[in-house]
Design a protein around this nucleic acid. Structure first.
Lengths: 350, 350
DNA sequence: CCGCGCCAATAGAACGTTCCAAAAGACAGT
DNA sequence: ACTGTCTTTTGGAACGTTCTATTGGCGCGG
């Protein structure tokens, strides 16, 4: 059990020697070519097993001038939504025989630039990126200019024609509002999310459109930006409850914010879904097990991840470095945080 | 802004030609050698910029017979604890100039075996692995035998001498129990975690030791295994509350289970920290923002991740493929879920 | 017995770096 | 001018694959 000395890698030529064939033949066997006689194939495979050969992908990639690596750059891996997305993407790539490469930028454009550079040097065949906040429009020009297929998820980059895979933010927000209207709510707030976020802009747009459709004045509806965290959600709630004539319901930027809002409500002794209706966005796994279970817009994260991966794979295989955007379906997952028809305490302040 | 044709990579020799030097000199410049005259260096750098050269790490690794890639295999990236760990590890590797490679196995030993194979083929310089449940003891023999530095996190593999970095599970559980004893609890349960989990065994050991220390019979204390999820926690709680003379407090396998236990308590109308004390393990970010904020054993995940990375890096640099285990410090983070001194309703059933 | 086609196997040149050994320059001392 | 020392630059052989073109062997029809 002593540490084995780091003996150097056994290569294809040593296999060849052991099996009494040429390295070309070994290469053929390795890629499962039809044109090698079964008896030789077996001999080679035996040698491979006996000598403990391990394939050197680096060398292969060098020669073939294309690689089996694909990159995925995630802006915040600790965010469960992003983690689920990453896992969905990874699964598709693995299944397709590519080696995915996850990197986390923690919302830092600087780190992101480093990571992009590294991936390019590593020779990725394609890239999926969920861009960090504040990413400059030209961040991906090098990669795209070199013909590397790139797909963005969730967030769009201004001015460039890079395909985007994301949920239908406008529709989702509309569905949420319509539900609340149905329940009798008339004063509905939009809570959370960075003010400069594109995703938030889309969701807010759907939110306002739904209000306008119902004959309400969208401009009078309050929208409070915040960091998209639990604390941010709780704070946004405080702000909004301090107003005179406060709302009775909120559509939240995402589930995390919604959790914060619920937390804030309970701190004030209000039961989410009874005194105040809350709807989230994303349907992270946790939403189902929260207390109360969170009504939210389900977006099928894993599905989006898989779709993004498929898009990149098709771009790689066809050689085209462009593709259509994909707007994923969404639906309202009704749970308890939005309550039943017009809870009695909802108008407690009216 | 039309898509640029995928013109082939510009290489070191084209830079050399453009700058009027040999490719050796360009290579020297690339690695910042002292012995190249500043004027030539500038000329080369100018050419690099002008031609848009990008370094080919694959080729470099091939020649140098060592790579700058390191792997990290995580058993469940969607688990926030693991995600935080991954991020900590990644950060250290990046800072050290290595390219980390995250892979998620989703607790599948099969997937894990594929991933390990892939990483070997890719030529990782080192590996950190948080092994999937049910990993066979010999899963890493190939890698270790080939002299690749491997460090395990959290989980240990039987029989092999692979360094492990993890928190002090025994001490953590002991601290939790001692706190509960101090608060007056006498019937304390251990809830959650797979029955065959090594980590659970250690935590349970500390749990029992603390009870024994206090003169209580550790064997009479109830320990219920479960899947380590919210549902698992809620179920374990149900089981334990159904017993006659049920416990008044629980130490949970981890925070996620603890959240489930709190959820279960609330469903029964019991306020965690008042009617029943709950202590978690890990201190994931969410614990602080839960309702009520979760008392838990804080383990400094990011710190553990960084430590694991440092260990691998040292192994890589020294060429030794062995290192000492690291048992990370833990401390009790007191919040509301464990309540104050002996809540009045705790003995409601006695 | 020749030429043809087919199958199985092979030689050897790539791929883009690094690095060793050695060449070329520069300068000083004799 | 020659030697020696130091600095700067260079040629060319690796690294472990893939792939194109080619060889050798064999069976078969003429």
């Amino acid at each position: 059990m002593a540490a084995a000395p780091p003996r150097d890698r056994v290569t294809i030529v040593e296999i060849a020697a052991a099996a009494g064939v040429s390295k070309s033949t070994v290469s053929l066997v390795l890629k499962g070519s039809e044109s090698v006689r079964p008896s030789t194939r077996d001999r080679v495979n035996a040698a491979i097993r006996d000598l403990g050969y391990v394939y050197n992908r680096g060398a292969a990639n060098l020669r073939r001038a294309r690689s089996n690596m694909v990159g995925m750059i995630i802006h915040d891996l600790i965010n469960p939504f992003c983690a689920e997305l990453a896992v969905g993407i990874e699964r598709s790539f693995q299944a397709a025989g590519y080696v995915p490469f996850i990197a986390n930028t923690a919302e830092s454009p600087v780190r992101q630039a480093e990571v992009i550079k590294l991936m390019r040097e590593q020779g990725v065949a394609g890239l999926i990126i969920s861009a960090a906040r504040g990413t400059p429009d030209e961040a991906l020009d090098g990669l795209v200019g070199a013909g590397v297929p790139v797909v963005m998820t969730m967030r769009r980059l201004g001015g460039r024609h890079i395909p985007v895979v994301g949920p239908d933010n406008r529709l989702g927000a509309r569905l949420a509002v319509e539900r609340l209207l149905e329940l009798g709510h008339r004063r509905i707030a939009f809570l959370g999310g960075y003010a400069d976020s594109g995703v938030r802009a889309e969701r807010l747009e759907g939110f306002r459109a739904a209000l306008a459709n119902a004959g309400l004045d969208p401009d009078s509806a309050v929208a409070i930006a915040s960091v998209p965290t639990r604390e941010g959600g709780a704070q946004a709630l405080e702000t909004v409850l301090a107003q005179r004539n406060p709302p009775t319901a909120a559509v939240c930027f995402n589930d995390i914010v919604a959790f914060g809002v619920c937390l804030g409500l309970r701190r004030r002794g209000i039961q989410p879904g009874r005194g105040f209706a809350v709807i989230g966005f994303d349907d992270v796994q946790e939403a189902l097990h929260a207390d109360p279970p969170l009504t939210t817009i389900a977006v099928d994260v894993m599905g989006l991840g898989e779709r993004a991966a498929q898009t990149v794979l098709r771009m790689i295989e066809t050689g085209r470095n462009t593709a259509e955007d994909h707007v994923g379906a969404v639906h309202l997952a009704v749970r308890e945080s939005c309550g039943g028809i017009m809870p009695e305490r909802a108008e407690r302040r009216a």
